[in-house]
Design a protein around this nucleic acid. Structure first.
Ligand SMILES: [Mn+2]
Ligand SMILES: [Mn+2]
Ligand SMILES: [Zn+2]
Ligand SMILES: [Zn+2]
Lengths: 142, 142
DNA sequence: GCTGAAATTGGAATTATTCTAATTCGGGAT
DNA sequence: ATCCCGAATTAGAATAATTCCAATTTCAGC
């Protein structure tokens, strides 16, 4: 009887070996794929738990290192709500976050098409904004 | 020669003994007055240091307790920038915060008159926003 | 197949904040 | 004024997210 070899040729690489000047190690690839897989804004610890399923040897320190690398190379966004632990988001479009106070779920919220900062903020003229984070909390309609 | 008594009758109480249903203990009054004195968005530890000047026996735990009480009674706002320690702000008007990346200084930024959230955000209809925090970083014009 | 720089790792360290349990405070009632 | 009692304060321990460290491993380029 012929048996299949379950150990040969695993899933093909979906991600290149270098991205945005960042060396795509297998840990970084794993962390990124975890974040891309579910758009639920996982914490570093969530990412650690999920990564361990396919890569049981990965360490929490590495997850933090990978997240830092991915964030600084703008492949992932870091999301903060008050003093909660940071979460990570694969949506690279300009957007902000709404946390449902009932469930804790975080939803992406987009800016209205074409809106500029100066349209709703009194920014002293000459101000150059390099980073913006807008976080909302509340209830979602029924 | 007549000498002034520098130790009698210190500054009159500027704050009532109860505010917004919050018992104004002398520690809470001190913490609040520190925050009102300089609009520089001090951290809990800054508040602790400054409070100790006039109230050397106050503890850091008490400062945290007082800040929590003042924030939950909306006499002070808590301000967060990414993962930095929380800062505290006496400006009760609707506003957000800009941190100068060069100096670390935090500036209040107000919303344009009459602007509503729905004017610049695509909020799913029926959404009720109970809390909003907008934090900016960047450079200020020369 | 070497080599060096960069990445990973486990564990320790850091640090802002919260918790705990004991003590003190203070306003109202007597 | 004294008593009472719940609330506030306090010092110190605990917590937890994140960062640091030093040793090992990986791997791209030669
Ligand atoms: Mn950010
Ligand atoms: Mn807030
Ligand atoms: Zn997002
Ligand atoms: Zn402010």
């Amino acid at each position: 009887m012929i048996s299949f070899d379950h150990h040969s040729s695993p899933a093909p690489e979906e991600l290149p070996s270098e991205l945005e000047g960042l060396r795509m190690t297998k840990q970084r690839r794993e962390v990124l794929s975890v974040i891309l897989a579910e758009r639920d804004h996982p914490t570093a610890n969530d990412v650690f738990t999920r990564s361990k399923e396919r890569m049981p040897t990965i360490s929490l320190a590495t997850v933090y290192n990978c997240l830092e690398a991915l964030v600084s190379h703008k492949l992932v966004k870091q999301v903060n709500f008050e003093r909660e632990s940071s979460r990570y988001c694969p949506n690279l479009n300009d957007h902000c976050h709404f946390q449902d106070e009932k469930t804790g779920t975080i939803h992406d919220v987009v800016f209205k098409k074409g809106v500029k900062l100066e349209d709703f903020l009194e920014l002293p003229q000459g101000t150059e904004v390099s980073h913006l984070e807008l976080s909302l909390k509340g209830r979602i309609g029924y």
